[in-house]
Design a protein around this nucleic acid. Structure first.
Length: 319
DNA sequence: TAGTTCAATAAAAGCGGCGT
DNA sequence: ACGCCGCTTTTATTGAACTA
């Protein structure tokens, strides 16, 4: 691993300018993932318009924690669809510009070459006080899978410092490009807000909730409440985190989120584990979901450590 | 044999509608 | 506003097959 990058932020970070109004709008999960992964590559290399940035399918699979098979298809379709995708931004107050993300992309030899426009290349590099930006660890946002989770997480990180933010309902719906049925607020809550907040709180570095802001009787805005789980300013949360590992008996007291995902899946499909710890009638995916929650907690990691060790051992030896 | 594609299957999202 | 049901459509996952 080389760390010779001259940029301020390491390759772990995806950084986007706040001028972009509708980042991720209308994108499939694969397109969002691709964009997040390309952001640091663009930032840390000097490619110009006419030159491409390359992402290998194998790397895509690893970063997104998906199968190699899925990665080929995801990457191929993402690179194709991204060509037709555009975003809008305010070059100055009162003006709105619409622009394409990329000029073209070619899929070959197990990866994609993506050609960005100069405009976008600049946007993905220029970050200072005149060009406010939002930054997050790509590894964290890539854990998200829900349809609007990337968008909501982006909004949350953009306003993390404030602890909360109000988004006009109309703006939210427009910038998320939600289907018409979401004009019905209960649908919007159920399928966008609740599910995204839940997924984000469960899987990322922030706890996210929301409440409605009313004018008269009608809801005009959504107020997102954003709390960083490890923010030293909030002592309550801090204490919880510190309590987590009073002692560290072995490697398996604490799993990284990536490992949680990986082992939840492996355990759910492991026959020996299943015979003891999976209820009859519980599907593989249900078990996996349950394990994902449980494996985030130390007590369960220890409880299942026997199986985890077995899985870890078999992962390293090539049969 | 690693890398890739494909087709079948499973799961989740979308969407209206209904009762409370 | 909210939760729940059922049907349709979209997306993800898997294992087997192809190929260079």
């Amino acid at each position: 691993m080389s760390d010779s990058t001259k940029s301020v932020y390491s390759k772990d970070n995806a950084v986007f300018p706040n001028r972009i109004i509708d980042l991720y709008k209308g994108m499939s999960l694969d397109e969002k993932r691709l964009l997040v992964l390309l952001s640091p590559i663009v930032r840390t290399t000097g490619v110009k318009e006419g030159e491409s940035v390359f992402l290998a399918a194998s790397e895509y699979a690893k970063e997104c924690n998906i199968s190699q098979t899925r990665a080929y298809e995801g990457l191929a379709s993402a690179s194709e669809r991204l060509v037709r995708r555009y975003f809008s931004y305010n070059p100055e107050p009162g003006k709105k510009t619409v622009a394409n993300w990329i000029l073209r992309s070619t899929y070959s030899e197990g990866g994609v070459d993506v050609f960005f426009t100069d405009e976008v290349l600049q946007m993905l590099r220029l970050f200072d006080k005149h060009n406010p930006y939002t930054r997050y660890k790509k590894e964290i946002i890539l854990r998200l899978k829900g349809d609007y989770s990337f968008e909501i997480y982006h909004i949350a990180k953009k306003n993390e410092g404030l602890g909360k933010t109000d988004v006009l309902l109309e703006d939210l719906k427009k910038n998320l490009a939600v289907p018409v049925s979401y004009e019905n607020l209960s649908n919007l809550k159920k399928r966008v807000l609740n599910s995204s907040c839940e997924e984000i709180s469960k899987n990322t570095d922030i706890n996210l909730s929301y409440e409605t802001v009313k004018r008269g009787r009608s809801v005009v805005a959504i107020r997102f409440i954003i709390k960083n789980k490890t923010d030293p300013k909030s002592k309550v949360n801090r204490a919880k985190v510190d309590l987590k590992d009073p002692n560290t008996p072995d490697l398996f007291t604490k799993l990284t989120p990536l490992e949680v995902n990986l082992y939840a899946k492996k355990l759910a499909n492991d026959p020996e584990f299943g015979s003891k710890h999976i209820e009859p009638g519980e599907s593989f995916s249900q078990a996996e979901e349950r394990l994902r929650v449980q494996l985030s907690q130390q007590e369960y990691v220890q409880k299942y450590s026997k199986y985890l060790k077995k899985l870890k051992a078999s992962a390293f030896k090539k049969p």
